[in-house]
Amino acid sequence: MSTPGLRYPSNRKSIYDRHLSRSKGAELSRASFAYLFVEMIGYAQRRVTGIADLEKRLNAQGYPIGLRLLDLLLYRTASSSSSSSSSLSASGPRPTRILPLLQFITTTLWRHLFGRPADALERSAASAQEYMVTDNEPLVNSYVSVPREMSSLNCAAFVAGIIEGVCDGAGFATQEVTAHWAGGQAEGTGGGGEGGAAAENMWPGRTIFLIRFKEEVVEREDMLEKAGR
C-alpha cells in the first residue's frame, strides 16, 4: 500500500474496476483540471525551443487521449442503443465518411470532454482538405493568460492533439491539427465565418481548430461519393 504507483481510493476500486459504460459521476472538478493543466504545460515547456515546439508537445500529450476516446465513446454509443442493434460487435459503427467523423467530434467528443457541443463546424473555402471546428471559449484556456511575448501560443493545442488522435484512430490520416486564435487567423485559410469582428469582441478566447486531412483521405471520400455510398 505504501509503494508508489497506482493509488487506490478507500473503497479499493481503481478506474479499471469501473464498467466502461458508466459515465455517471465521472465529471472532474474544473479546478483540479486547471492545476493539472498548469503542470502539463510546465512539463511541456522544459527544454522547449520555441512556441511551435511547445504546441507540438501539447499536441503530443493529447494525441493518445484521442485514440482511446474514439474507442470508448463508440463503445458507449453502441451500448446505449444495444437493444436495437443486432450485431455481435460491442462497438458502435465507426464513422467512415468525413462528415460523420466531424459530427462525432463536434458533438459526441465535445460533449464528453466539455459538456457542450462545439460552436461551429466549417469547411475551408481555400482547400478541400481543410475543415475548421470553432470553440468560442475552450475550457482548457479558461484560466490561461498567455504572456505578450508568446501571444501566438494557444494552449488548446492540447485539444487539437485529441482531435488528431480521433481522426487518425478512425482511419482518417491528418497532416496536422492545429489550434489558432480566431483574431490572428491568417486570411488564406478561408472564410472566417460570419461577423468575425463582433464575435471576437464577445469571445476574446475564440479558437479555431484547423483539421488538415491527407490527400488520400479526400481522394477516398471522392470515390465513395461517386460510388454513392
Partner: peptide
Amino acid sequence: SDFVMKNPFYTVEMPIRCEKFDR
C-alpha cells in the same frame, strides 16, 4: 486564485501580469 494561481505562465511570488485577471 482562478486567473493568477491557475495560470500556467505565472510564477508564484513574481509580479502579476495576467490579462484575464485584469479583465
